[in-house]
Design a protein around this nucleic acid. Structure first.
Length: 271
DNA sequence: CTCCAGGTGCTTG
DNA sequence: CAAGCACATGGA
């Protein structure tokens, strides 16, 4: 077992805030999977314990420990409601996940819910993934790009009308294209992603934020729409892309974090 | 049984 | 442009 010192992370807020879908809690540990990684984390005071097929550098990138969240909170200290969300969920981190798993996960997300998305990605992993035994439990890696090419299996995973999107995106994308998206600036990366069927503006923003580390992404779903039209924009019928554009102007490269804290706050406190 | 869920794509005014 | 609707499916 290994440890990172002098860092405060709230794993519950981080994992339960709808960023990723393969994790569970057991014996005071949070078990997490993304791509072909399997590891467990435990946070106590300012220590972060970890174990699995990762090293410290990977974990620092996964939890984006290089981001100065305290400085970001200070930048918005005059925004009382935002300040409340930041304080309430201190320690919530944006995660940096496997891009392809992130793409498929959020392709599954449209008009769905978190428990069901979990079920979808678990099923795909169990069908196609490589087995890994860790702590006497069996885990499965996420199927690599190109593998999800059987409509029948995608249907079995209960992805419903999203099956055709996963199938087509799996066929369209290449590893090279994924690297191009990584290198491209936010706007162009978003355009590239939206060439894939099933990836609209909201899903693209989730993928850019959690899979590619583009921090100005600001996904606007029903919950974000609710809180943004309640707190910042009067007009209830403002379309999602206008809310997202407003937020990127207002929050800049903090937009991604602001979104995640507001999303979590909205789900916990708004109707 | 009806309604909704981290939307998207397509068709109409 | 904006508005309406189908799309699968599990859970409340």
């Amino acid at each position: 077992m290994a440890v990172i010192r002098n860092i405060h992370v709230d794993l519950e807020h981080t994992l339960e805030s709808g960023q990723l879908f393969r994790y569970f809690q057991k014996n005071n540990w949070w078990y997490i999977q993304t791509g072909d990684k399997v590891f467990k984390l435990r946070s106590e005071k300012n220590l972060l314990h970890y174990e699995g097929n990762i090293d410290e550098q990977y974990l620092r990138e996964f939890l984006r420990l290089h981001d100065d969240v305290d400085a970001m909170v200070k930048r918005h200290s005059t925004d009382n409601r935002l300040k409340e969300a930041f304080e309430k969920y201190r320690g919530l981190r944006i995660t940096r996940q496997d891009p392809w798993e992130c793409i498929v996960s959020f392709l599954c997300s449209s008009a769905s819910n978190i428990p069901k998305i979990k079920m979808n990605v678990h099923h795909m992993s169990k069908t196609y993934g490589k087995e890994i035994v860790f702590d006497d439990m069996t885990f499965y890696t996420f199927p690599k790009l190109g593998v999800l090419n059987d409509m029948a299996v995608l249907k079995e995973a209960k992805t419903g009308f999203r099956a055709k999107y996963i199938h087509a995106t799996n066929k369209l994308l290449t590893q090279q294209r994924i690297e191009e998206i990584q290198k491209a600036p936010y706007e162009q990366a978003k355009q590239f992603l939206m060439e894939c069927p099933g990836i609209g503006e909201k899903v693209a923003d989730c993928i850019l934020l959690f899979g590619f580390g583009k921090m100005e992404a600001f996904p606007v779903d029903t919950w974000m729409h609710k809180i943004m039209t309640q707190w910042y924009i009067r007009k209830k019928k403002t379309p999602p892309h206008k809310i997202a554009a407003y937020a990127r102007r207002k929050f800049g490269s903090d937009a991604g974090y602001v979104q995640q804290y507001l999303f979590y706050y909205s789900r916990k406190h708004l109707q």
